[in-house]
């Protein structure tokens, strides 16, 4: 297999893992304002305090894979989106330190609550904004005429704002499903209630974003609708609807307090929904890293570098997945059952 393509897949995997793992974890912060009774916020925080750090590492991994395998794209994308990326980093700083300080605070707790929830929400919004503006394409990189791609505010469009809010809704949906899996009683019921509403919003947002791109981006439209393509690609939207139906069903019919076997299903269904949406996105953009300007082949590092990193990726990525899985297993079950600290 072509090395550059292999790293394109690795990059895709890293981004998906990040979106899935930090997705539910940022989503907890987005859902925060809807949980305000005694102890509820402690519960929310504790459900992710042992995993947020690992989840965020996927963001660093995505960044360095881009740097190592596609340095040209790394430099361009990051400097083009300077302000939204910096805003996302600021937001991540606030929510990250809140984990440590909140539990040790007395009087300052409301501030850490605010830092956690607004930081999570802003970070999620920025990621959606980046996604939307990347799909729309950026001004020519080498243009010397008037608007330089580094100085314009091209990333702030109605479409990118829509994708910003869509990603927030999607992350919140993942979080609601995660809480549903990790909680009992009132919190669980409330998570199911919020999850159903978020599911509707997320599905509507996915439809809106898809229609918008298909209407406005000719290349993506052709990718989807020329020849038999749509027939071949039709499983993506169909399976997405099936996944959404599963989420709804499990969240909606949850009344039986004795049977806990189905409580993780909504999370996995929502994760599948994300995977399908992500696949749909890649289908539209392939083989570009920066749409219409830079393909992954053009941006790739020389073979000497890609080969050097190959054993590392092949050995360590499976290993990382294995011990990450183990880490989640150690803290399996409901949050109430591992409420001890350190």
């Amino acid at each position: 297999m072509d090395l550059a393509f292999f790293y394109f897949l690795v990059l895709g995997f890293a981004i998906f893992m990040y979106v899935l793992l930090d997705g539910f974890d940022l989503g907890i912060g987005i859902l925060y304002p809807w949980f305000h009774q005694d102890g509820e916020r402690d519960h929310l925080m504790r459900s992710i305090s042992h995993v947020w750090d690992g989840n965020e590492t996927w963001l660093v991994f995505g960044g360095v894979i881009l740097f190592a395998a596609f340095p040209a794209a790394y430099g361009d994308i990051l400097s083009i989106f300077y302000l939204p990326i910096m805003l996302m980093l600021f937001a991540l700083i606030f929510r990250g330190v809140a984990f440590e300080y909140r539990f040790k605070s007395d009087t300052s707790r409301p501030y850490w609550d605010l830092a956690f929830s607004s930081g999570s929400a802003i970070a999620a919004f920025c990621q959606g904004l980046l996604l939307g503006s990347l799909v729309q394409g950026v001004p020519a990189l080498t243009s010397n005429l008037g608007t330089n791609s580094l100085s314009s505010l091209h990333w702030l469009t109605p479409f990118s704002i829509l994708t910003g809010f869509s990603v927030m809704a999607g992350y919140a949906l993942l979080a609601a499903c995660y809480l549903f899996m990790k909680s009992r009683g009132r919190i669980q019921q409330h998570a199911a209630y919020l999850g159903k509403r978020l599911l509707i919003i997320t599905v509507l947002a996915m439809v809106a974003v898809s229609l918008w791109t298909v209407i406005n981006e000719t290349e993506i439209r052709e990718r989807w609708f020329s020849g038999y393509n749509f027939l071949l690609l039709s499983p993506l939207p169909i399976l997405s609807l099936v996944a959404a139906a599963f989420v709804w069903k499990d969240l909606h019919s949850h009344t039986d307090y004795e049977d806990h076997s189905n409580e993780s299903r909504p999370f996995w269904a929502a994760a599948s929904l994300f995977l399908l949406g992500f696949a749909g996105l890649v289908v539209g953009l392939f083989p570009y890293l920066i749409p219409r300007q830079l393909t992954f082949m053009e941006a790739a590092s020389p073979d000497s570098s890609l080969l050097f990193l190959l054993p590392g990726v092949c050995i360590f990525v499976p290993l990382i997945c294995a011990y990450t899985f183990w880490g989640y297993r150690v803290f399996a079950g409901k949050v109430e059952d591992y409420q001890e600290g350190y």
Binding site: F61, V64, I65, F67, A68, A69, F70, P71, A72, Y74, G75, S301, P302, S304, S305, F308, L309, G312, V313
Partner: peptide
């Protein structure tokens, strides 16, 4: 320098 520093940081 991405071809040199990138893989080091990826490791």
């Amino acid at each position: 320098t991405g071809a040199i520093l990138g893989p080091l940081m990826a490791y």
